[in-house]
Design a protein around this nucleic acid. Structure first.
Length: 497
DNA sequence: TTAGGGTTAG
């Protein structure tokens, strides 16, 4: 186990040096110049990310100013996206590049940086960036405000989000029906349909609410399983002279399934048919998924076949939905049959498709097969996302294969895909299963690393590790943990280190 | 990034 502790030290660090593709200008960073460095492709965001992760602030600063990388908004955005789960580094990179002699940031890069800062709950930086955007006449735009309000809502500050939305114009960005609808959607997606509806009532005349506004609210009520409320809103819509669209019907259909009203969903579907309502791929995908989730695989299959007969082409989402329900309520073998069938028909599965299949395989303990599909993704040039890695790590942990889960974690750290809050939580919890003191050290290191990356662990996590360290007489490391805890403001106010 | 379908777990 000691091996693991020391291995963790090297995550994201030593192995990167070898795998990095250096460009001439980066050579002076290293004490020993690699013999014949392969050229760095202009587009090698992954290589640059590894470099950015590895370097300290000063070295990075010198390099961003003097290197000969041809910065483009596209490259910068790719890097910011890759550094998503290392917010402090991402912002450091963004700020340093702001001082670049020639390159200037684009609107979308500003939006990304604002999103990252807001996710770190660093609102001071958020508003500084907004002001800077405005000064450079790059915005802020409606999307900027969609980002900021969404972050406030998900941080549990919907009232603040409302105030921000209402004050958009003070930052030089006018509100219109689009931004109003976007904001209603932000509230609804975070299950605050009632709040959205109240705001809607006050502002619907001012913004001339349309079908989209009503659909958003109805969908919001469906998301919290309140189909009757959704229907009321739609009645109101019709009374105000607006016609429901196919999207409206699809929202209700999905709402019935979400609320477990399978019979109602089926009746609604039949009613749509009776009224000769033109259905689309979304209608059918909703039906396949809805029936499947409720365990009615035969019905799901029947609807799927009917869809083909009607001449409506399934989408990747339809196949994904079907594969998922087969994994959950049928057998993973049958899911694989559909997966192969999909390939044969020329569809390209995306990361969601792989995700449901890999999850299904993990669930029945076929970890090796799951790992095969993970590799297959790469061959298909479909980058595995953090959720997929988390699934694999979680199931390895559940099976007691801690070493294997750490191996996967290491693979992530070496540039493939940075771990997120869930990854750290899953692994840290797993470190308490075997009750080994080495595992405790790993947990501590993971905790420190996650704090460095801008994540805020729960108090419970800190206490658990601190108690363990104090019990095993590891005072020094406990101090280090306490410093990390104070860094992210999780220490009691009068606590002194 | 103006609305609807497919990743999460008991």
């Amino acid at each position: 186990m000691i091996g693991n502790v020391s291995r963790l030290h090297t995550i994201n660090r030593s192995s990167l040096v070898c795998s990095l593709k250096f460009k001439s200008s980066f050579h002076n960073l290293t004490t020993t110049t690699p013999p014949s460095p392969p050229p760095l492709e202009e587009d090698d965001a992954a290589g640059l990310c590894n470099l950015i992760l590895k370097l300290d602030l000063q070295t990075l600063s010198q390099n961003l100013e003097t290197n000969s990388v041809c910065w483009t908004p596209d490259l910068v955005n790719k890097i910011l996206k890759r550094l998503w789960n290392h917010g402090p580094k991402a912002l450091e990179f963004f700020r340093l590049l702001e001082r670049h002699p020639i390159y200037t940031h684009s609107t979308t890069s500003f939006d990304h940086a604002i999103d990252i800062a807001a996710r770190l709950r660093d609102y001071k930086t958020v508003w500084t960036l907004v002001a800077r955007m405005r000064k450079r006449r790059l915005g802020p735009n409606p999307k900027t405000f969609a980002i900021i309000t969404e972050r406030f809502v998900s941080a549990g500050k919907p009232d603040k989000a409302v105030r921000v939305f209402l004050s958009m114009h003070e930052h030089g960005c006018q509100q219109d029906l689009n931004s109003f609808n976007t904001f209603l959607d932000v509230l609804c997606k975070s299950k605050r349909a009632e709040m959205a509806y109240n705001l809607f009532k006050v502002l619907k005349r001012r913004f001339k609410a349309d079908t989209i506004s009503y659909n958003i609210i109805a969908n919001g009520f469906c998301l919290i399983k309140r189909t009757p409320r959704a229907l009321e809103v739609l009645r109101e819509m019709v009374e105000s002279g607006l016609e429901p669209t196919l999207k409206t019907y699809n929202i209700i259909l999905n709402g019935y399934f979400k609320a477990g009203q399978i019979k109602e969903a089926w009746q609604f579907f039949l009613e749509m048919k009776r009224r000769k309502c033109v259905m689309d791929v979304v209608t059918y995908t909703t039906m396949v998924h809805g029936f499947g989730v409720s365990g009615e695989i035969q019905k799901a299959r029947q609807v799927f076949d009917e869809m083909l007969e009607t001449g409506i082409l399934p989408s990747v989402a339809t196949y994904t939905a079907f594969i998922q329900v087969l994994c959950k309520k049928d057998t993973v073998e049958n899911a694989i049959v559909v997966f192969e069938e999909m390939l044969k028909k020329g569809y390209t599965p995306n990361s969601t498709t792989y995700s449901v299949l890999i999850r299904g395989l993990c669930h029945v303990g076929k970890m090796d097969k799951a790992m095969e599909y993970l590799d297959r993704m790469k061959q298909d040039e479909c980058e595995p996302n953090v959720q997929i890695f988390n699934v694999i790590i979680r199931y390895y942990c559940d099976e007691g294969e801690i070493e294997k889960s750490l191996e996967v974690f290491e693979r992530m750290g070496s540039g493939e895909c940075l771990p997120n809050l869930d990854t750290y939580n899953i692994l840290i919890s797993a470190m308490f299963v075997r009750k080994r003191s080495d595992d405790l050290m790993v947990a501590g290191k993971l905790l420190i690393e996650m704090v460095d990356r801008g994540f805020v662990p729960r108090k419970f996590t800190f206490n658990r590790i601190l108690n363990g360290l104090l019990l095993t007489g590891n005072q020094d490391f406990a101090q280090e943990i306490l410093r990390a805890q104070s860094k992210c403001g999780r220490l009691p106010r009068h606590f002194r280190l």
